[in-house]
């Protein structure tokens, strides 16, 4: 990282030229960026290399790109990969939308109304998500069995059921996160709107929601990525393989170390990373620079 002004001649210290000033203040950031990109991306090069190698494996050895073949990518078509992509997108999107809406509503209530047990509930919500859920699969399974008898679409092997389970964690995980942000919107703005005769619902939807877009984007992203990567709950709930999400389906390719198909797995991963990247790029606009200047309580 010692790239600070390497080209600046010694005389420039006394009389900084425009160029060396540029190096000192801005220019050095480019070589550093290269380092960071190396740090971020070099492990992923192995994934790419494995995905292009028919007998690929992920054991990082040095023989990168020893063979280039798109066989693995073509082989994806022989699997249910694209079905899984569809399922994952549906489930992830539903989980994200639900998390954003329910979390925002709850955060608004906690931020704007004063009611009994408010602080207690807030701390409670935060602590709830620290529950170690490893043995909870028994309970989840039985619960869905019971629900499925009454409402078949909420039973085992239903995407809706999985979405509902994810929604169950929406409040615990997100209320606290959004609450702080809601607080940073000055309440004088609501007061003013109220005097203008706006109802609380109008204030929430028309005034507050647009102002908190960045945190909505963050929560949506987190919920989507969580649903995208989860395979513990999904594995219990989604039984038949045309209902699987990418995480379960692709994990099945490699779960048996004796027959692990790392090549096709890597190819799948490279493709599966695209939706998340696209989401990132889309939401980046809202997250970065989406906040109106001065809205943070000083």
């Amino acid at each position: 990282m010692a790239t600070t002004a390497p080209s600046a001649p010694s005389t420039s210290r006394r009389q900084p030229t425009r160029r060396s000033r540029w190096w000192l203040e801005v220019g050095w950031k480019y070589p550093l960026a290269v380092l960071i990109i190396f740090y971020a991306a070099f492990p992923l090069v192995f994934v790419l290399s494995a995905s292009l190698d028919e007998g690929g494996n992920l054991r990082g050895t040095e023989s990168l790109f020893s063979s280039i073949s798109f066989e693995n990518y073509a082989n994806l078509n022989d699997t249910l990969f694209w079905t899984w992509v569809g399922n994952t997108l549906i489930i992830g999107a539903a989980a994200a939308v639900g998390a954003v809406l329910m979390g925002a509503c709850a955060a608004y209530a906690f931020s704007r109304f004063r009611f009994q047990g408010r602080r207690f509930s807030l701390t409670g919500l935060l602590i709830l998500q620290m529950f170690p859920q490893t043995v909870a699969f028994v309970a989840v399974f039985l619960l869905l069995l019971a629900l499925g008898e009454v409402v078949p679409s909420l039973g085992i092997d239903s995407k809706i059921a999985l979405i509902c389970v994810y929604w169950g964690t929406a409040l615990g995980a997100n209320t606290f996160l959004m609450y702080g942000f809601f607080n940073s919107i000055p309440s004088e703005m609501d007061e003013a709107a109220k005097i203008d005769g706006a109802t609380h619902a109008q204030i929430f939807w028309k005034l507050i929601m647009p102002l908190v877009t960045p945190i909505l984007a963050v929560v949506g992203l987190l919920a989507f990525v969580a649903a995208f990567g989860d395979f513990i709950l999904a594995k219990i709930i989604l039984v038949s393989n045309d209902n699987w999400t990418l995480a379960i389906g692709m994990y099945a390719w490699v779960s048996d170390q004796l027959t692990a198909r790392w090549g096709i797995f890597s190819a799948g991963t490279v493709i599966a990373a695209l939706p998340v990247l696209v989401l990132f790029l889309t939401l980046q606009r809202y997250i970065v620079g989406g906040l109106t200047s001065g809205s943070v309580k000083g």
Binding site: M102, C105, A106, F110, F115, L125, F131, L143, G168
Partner: peptide, 25 residues
């Protein structure tokens, strides 16, 4: 019940899918 109007939907899912699961555990 103004605050509850906002919390209720999330709360329902929380009760069914998280609190119940903890209780069962």
């Amino acid at each position: 019940t103004l605050p509850l109007k906002y919390i209720f939907p999330g709360l329902v899912f929380l009760l069914i899918f998280q609190v119940f699961v903890m209780g069962y555990t």
